[in-house]
Amino acid sequence: MGKQAIERIVEKYGSDHADVLEMLIDIQEKEHYLSRETLQYLSERLAVPLTRLYHMATFYEALSLKRRGRHQIHVCMGTACHVRGAARILEQLERCLSIKSGEVTPDLQFGLATVNCVGTCALGPVVSVDGEYHGHMSASKVERMLKRYSETEANGVAVCQK
């Protein structure tokens, strides 16, 4: 992320170091990760020790030092979803995207991760994409769901052919 883009976010919060977590979340949303350069720049700009930013970036699930996908997929592995076949859905997603949980597709379009409960057990098994919940998921619905999020038709076809 360029310095100007970071600067816009910093100024949105009045350059107040108390709002640094909000800034990190905004940057994460735009960039899908927090680069080392970003943290170093913020640290100098706001006079917040780099240790503290690193602490936050590794503590909060919403923040990531590793690149995530433009569409971040979370498969709920909670008890209710688990007994209804969350493992099979995860497997199908891994197969379709040719990545393992915790990884990102080479084109950075999709990132895959598991969560332990999203709190909507009645809808289980649940998969959330970009914070949007897909309830009553099944392995056979995975492909259609991915297509909906694919940015271009070409990508949409590419998905699930591997």
Partner: peptide
């Protein structure tokens, strides 16, 4: 301010930023 906690839960540990040399 050379070192900090990183991670959470069982992954928590004490380290310099990015787990590299503590430049401070």
């Amino acid at each position: 301010e050379a070192i900090t906690f990183s991670g959470r839960g069982e992954r928590r540990k004490v380290e310099p930023p990015f787990g590299e040399e503590a430049l401070n």
